[in-house]
Structures are given as C-alpha cells and as structure tokens.
Amino acid sequence: MAVRVQEADFDPGAELEALAAGNTEIGAVVSFTGLVRGSGGVETMTLEHYPGMTEKALEAIEAEAHERWALQASAIIHRIGPMIPGERIVFVATASRHRGVAFEAAEFLMDYLKTRAPFWKKEVAADGTAKWVDARESDDGAAARWAR
C-alpha cells in the first residue's frame, strides 16, 4: 500500500513495475491515469489540497479497498500545484491474483478519491479568467454504488 501527494510528475510504467515486483502471487495489475483536459480553453489547472487530511483520506480509502477486495498491492498518486493540459494528474493501481478484483478495486479507489479526498481544481483560461471547478453529481452517483 502506498499513497503519495506530490508536485512532481510520475512515471506510470515505473510505478507498475514497482507495484508487482517480487510478488509472484500477482496475476493481474490494473491502473488508471488521469490527465488534465484542455477543453473549454483551459490553459493551466491548479490543484489545491488540505495537507494532512489529504494523506489521511487517501490512506483510509486505500485501506477500505484492501478490506473489501483481496488485493496483493495498490498505489495512489495525486499531484498538486499548477499543471497544463496533457499532464498526468492522478494515478491509481491495484494488483491481485485475478483480474476481476483488480478492476473493481481500481474503480472504487477512483470513485472514492473523487468524492472524499480534499482536492480542489482551479482552471485558468487563456484570457486570464479563473474558475473553480464544480463538483459533478455523476461522481457522487459513481461513489454511491459502492455503499454497503
């Protein structure tokens, strides 16, 4: 299990290799990489977060995934600070014996991350206008399907 909140970019390939290294029980590795979209004339996107709570929230989400699914390994990386369209912003990966568990758990990690981890996106357009991104109801719906 590993959670990282960082300004720097990351290398998904290297992360996936590290995730499965040395564990031959792993038969499936699933990952999701989120990129900054440039739609709507977005020139830069800045990620604000709540230092302290962010890490705790991500660790709690990851721990819950391990409680619900028989995961061999997992990783969550979220970037903060300014980014431009095309840059990687978030990464989750799960590893398990078989693929079903890894797919489900990866979706769960993203759905909970998007609705429970204290990050906020601010977009700045080419003309300088800044806008805080609104939360999407569809994200709440996606998270609600995991309710027990």
Binding site: H49, Y50, I89, R116, F119, K121, W132, D134
Partner: peptide, 10 residues
C-alpha cells in the same frame, strides 16, 4: 475545523 466546497480532485 475545515470548511470547503465539495471536493473536485481526481
């Protein structure tokens, strides 16, 4: 106590 808008990470 932290007060904030709905979160928008990911």
């Amino acid at each position: 106590v932290a007060l904030f808008p709905p979160v928008t990470g990911g």
